[in-house]
C-alpha cells in the first residue's frame, strides 16, 4: 500500500515531481536501507568482543599468553581513542552529529576495552585493593567524561549505572528479579537519596543548557531507582506512610517530566508506582477482607485512568 501513496499524492499536487522521484525510489524498494541491520551487527560485535576479551584475560591471568593479550588490548584501546580524538568535533553543550556512522560504536568499544584493562591492572597490581569501591568511582568518572566529551548517551547510562553501583545500587532487571536489590537493609533509602540528588543535578545542568538531550537518560534512571526504592521501603518498614507520600510526590514529578519532555515512559512509571502505592494503602486501611470490593476497585480505578488518558488525548500527544 505504501507504494501507491507517493503516486497519489503527486497526482493530487501535494508533493513535487522531484520529491516524488526520491520517495518512490525508497517506497518501491529500489533502494533498501540496511541502517538498523548494520548497526545491530556492529553493536553485537562490540558486545561479543569486549565480553570475550574481558573473560579471556581474566581466565588466563598468570600465564604467558596473557601478557601478549593485555598488550594487544591496551594497544586497541589506545587505537580506539586515537581514532575518536582525531575524528571528534570540538566539545559543544548541544547535541553533536557523529562525524562517521560508526563513530559512536568506536567510542563504546574504546570505553569498554578501557574497563577491561582497568580491571586487569587493578587485579594484577592491586592499585585500588584497599577500596574496591574507588575503582567503580574511577570507572564512573571516566565514563562521564567520555559521555560528555563525545556526546554519547549510551556511555552516559553506563556512567550512571557505575555511579549507582558505587552506592551498592544495582540497576539490572536480573538483580531485581532475584531480590538482590534489597540485600542490604537501608539500601532503599540510599536509592531514594541517590536518585533525588542525581535528578536535581541533572535538572540544574538542563537549566544551564548543558547537554539537554542527556536529561532524559538521567531522569529515566532516577525515576526507576526512586520508585523501586520507595516501593521497597513501603513494603519493608513500619514507616509506610512516609514512603507512600514519597511515591506520590515522585508521581507528581514524573508526571510533569512526562509532559515537559513529551516522553510518556515516565507516565508508565508514575502509573504503576501510584497504583502499587494506592493499592497498598487501601489494603492496609479499607479493603482488607472483601474480594468483591477489590474487583470493583480495579475496574473503577483502571477504568477511570483509561477514561482520563483518552479524554485528554491531545495532552498526551508526542511532538512530531
Amino acid at each position: 500500500m505504501t507504494e501507491e501513496i507517493p503516486r497519489k499524492l503527486l497526482d493530487h499536487g501535494f508533493i513535487s515531481e522531484d520529491q516524488y522521484s526520491k520517495i518512490h525510489l525508497i517506497s518501491s524498494g529500489k533502494i533498501v536501507s540496511v541502517f538498523y541491520e548494520l548497526r545491530s551487527l556492529f553493536y553485537l560485535g562490540v558486545l561479543l568482543f569486549t565480553s570475550g576479551a574481558g573473560i579471556l584475560i581474566y581466565k588466563n591471568i598468570g600465564e604467558f599468553g596473557h601478557v601478549i593479550s593485555i598488550i594487544v588490548l591496551i594497544l586497541l584501546t589506545i587505537a580506539c581513542f586515537w581514532y575518536v580524538y582525531k575524528k571528534a568535533p570540538a566539545y559543544s553543550n548541544s547535541s553533536v552529529i557523529s562525524p562517521t556512522p560508526y563513530f559512536d560504536y568506536i567510542v563504546l568499544l574504546g570505553a569498554l576495552l578501557f574497563i577491561s584493562v582497568q580491571g586487569y591492572l587493578q587485579f594484577q597490581f592491586g592499585i585500588f585493593n584497599e577500596n574496591l569501591g574507588l575503582s567503580t568511582l574511577v570507572t564512573s568518572a571516566f565514563f562521564f567524561y567520555v559521555a560528555y566529551r563525545f556526546d554519547h548517551a549510551g556511555i552516559l547510562s553506563l556512567a550512571i549505572t557505575a555511579l549507582a553501583s558505587f552506592w551498592s545500587i544495582s540497576i539490572s532487571p536480573q538483580k531485581w528479579y532475584s531480590g538482590n536489590f534489597l540485600s542490604s537493609s537501608n539500601l532503599h533509602n540510599t536509592a531514594i537519596v541517590f536518585s533525588t540528588v542525581v535528578a536535581v543535578v541533572s535538572l540544574g545542568l538542563d537549566k544551564k543548557a548543558i547537554k539537554t538531550h542527556f536529561t532524559f537518560t538521567y531522569l529515566n534512571f532516577c525515576s526507576l531507582i526512586f520508585f523501586i526504592g520507595a516501593i521497597a521501603g513501603l513494603f519493608i518498614g513500619n514507616l509506610w506512610g512516609v514512603y507512600l507520600l514519597l511515591i506520590y510526590s515522585g508521581c507528581v514529578f514524573t508526571f510533569y517530566v512526562a509532559r515537559w519532555k513529551k516522553s510518556f515512559l515516565f507516565l508508565i512509571y508514575a502509573f504503576i508506582s501510584a497504583y502499587i502505592g494506592t493499592t497498598y494503602l487501601l489494603a492496609r486501611t479499607v479493603l482488607s477482607e472483601a474480594i468483591e470490593l477489590w474487583f470493583l476497585y480495579s475496574i473503577v480505578s483502571c477504568g477511570g485512568f483509561i477514561y482520563f488518558i483518552v479524554s485528554f488525548k491531545n495532552y498526551f500527544k508526542q511532538k512530531s
Binding site: 563504546l108 580491571g119 575503582s135 565514563f143 556511555i155 553506563l158 539490572s172
Partner: peptide, 23 residues
C-alpha cells in the same frame, strides 16, 4: 546499552579474592 553491557557490577560488601569487576 546499559542493560546489556558492563557497568552493572555492584561493589561487593565483603571483599573476596575475585576481582569483582570485569567489564
Amino acid at each position: 546499552v546499559s542493560q546489556t553491557l558492563g557497568g552493572n557490577q555492584v561493589v561487593p560488601k565483603i571483599e573476596t579474592g575475585e576481582g569483582g569487576k570485569f567489564g
